[in-house]
């Protein structure tokens, strides 16, 4: 725990140094003379940064606060469309990029707030279905918009390609730091307490509705920003990019990395993308592999049969307690 300004300064400097080192290493690897990360891999690296931001946001909602959301892609699309619309009408410079990204995050956050008030009362699988429904409604509504406004089913293009490695990297790093610090605060603890036991945390004076809303809005805010960066990364967006499948893909990252584990989310995003590159010509096999991973991980971590327990002990895996793991802010 940090209580004084000296340790705070130390830990901040450490964090900044770590971020700078990662950045420098990436940059050196991208140099044309070295060319370990060639232009093709650079796009993958950017994709990883965007997905890290998306997945961290979902982890805050689902892993840390325990509110199952299957509509994350819908909120991403809100950010993506907001930013794309702004950038199609304004000139592109650093200021407008930042404004459009923030606008994307804020609009997504506002919509999440409005959706969250009625739905966050729902528990577990019901919430999952309600958010899935909202995600789909957002997609369908964008689909039915006028062609001159948001492009309808045909999508929006050409959006200026304004995202670059620096922007998405800083976004992912900031997102990580924000969520990490929230976790180490009373807000983070209250979120974990809601996941652990709603009735107990309510009796201890935690306003669970507010806590859920906070996590939901913060998580979708990051989804919105990631969406904004996605628009400037692909240059062409259409409603069907943000369907239910996309939400599941993000969920998959969060689950594979460990619900509530933000380092795991980063690692899982990188690993899944590496698998994706290796299997880029075999999209179906990749999806089959992902699906199998999902099933096997769930069975290994939550299963109760004797042979599973034996395997778990043999491989020294800790049983995954869904309603929470680890200390808040440890």
């Amino acid at each position: 725990m940090i209580f004084d300004k000296k340790t705070r300064a130390k830990s901040s400097i450490k964090a900044i140094i770590v971020v700078c080192i990662i950045y420098a290493v990436m940059k050196i690897l991208m140099l044309p003379q070295i060319n370990v990360i060639n232009p093709f891999y650079q796009t993958i690296v950017m994709k990883i940064c965007i997905e890290i931001t998306l997945a961290l946001g979902l982890n805050l909602i689902t892993g840390i606060t325990g509110q199952f959301s299957l509509g994350h892609a819908g909120f991403m699309s809100v950010g993506a469309y907001t930013a794309a619309y702004i950038m199609l009408h304004w000139t592109v410079n650093l200021a407008t990029i930042i404004i459009s990204a923030l606008a994307g995050g804020i609009v997504a956050g506002i919509i999440a707030f409005l959706i969250g008030i009625p739905t966050l009362r729902l528990r577990g699988d019901y919430l999952a279905i309600a958010t899935l429904g909202f995600g789909e409604i957002i997609r369908i509504l964008i689909q039915t918009t006028d062609k001159s406004f948001l492009g309808g089913a045909a999508g929006l293009s050409p959006i200026p390609i304004y995202s670059n490695f620096e922007l998405v990297f800083i976004m992912a790093a900031l997102c990580y730091v924000c969520i990490n610090n929230i976790l180490k605060s009373s807000y983070g603890r209250s979120m974990v307490s809601v996941r652990e036991d709603e009735i107990a945390s309510e009796s201890m004076g935690v306003n669970i509705t507010n806590v859920k809303l906070l996590a939901f809005v913060a998580g979708t805010f990051f989804a919105g920003i990631a969406g904004a960066m996605y628009s400037g990364y692909v240059g062409f967006i259409q409603p069907k990019d943000f369907g239910f499948m996309k939400s599941i893909e993000i969920l998959m990252i969060v689950v594979l990395g460990g619900l509530g584990n933000i380092k795991g989310t980063v690692a899982a995003t990188i690993i899944l993308n590496i698998i994706g590159v290796i299997l880029q010509d075999f999209a179906e096999i990749r999806m089959i592999l992902y699906a199998l991973l999902l099933i096997i991980i769930m069975i290994m971590m939550c299963g109760e049969s004797p042979w599973i327990i034996k395997m778990r002990n043999m491989l020294n895996i800790k049983k995954f307690n869904f309603k929470g793991r680890g200390k808040a802010g440890a």
């Binding site: 705070r8 929230i182 652990e196 107990a200």
Partner: peptide, 30 residues
């Protein structure tokens, strides 16, 4: 109804959340 997967200390701290006197932004920038 303890928060079983949290530390003893965190269990205590959650009870004080209602008196949290800093904002989310304050938590982010410490």
């Amino acid at each position: 109804r303890l928060f079983k997967n949290l530390s003893v200390l965190d269990n205590m701290l959650i009870s004080m959340h209602k008196d949290v006197g800093y904002s989310v932004f304050g938590a982010i920038i410490k």
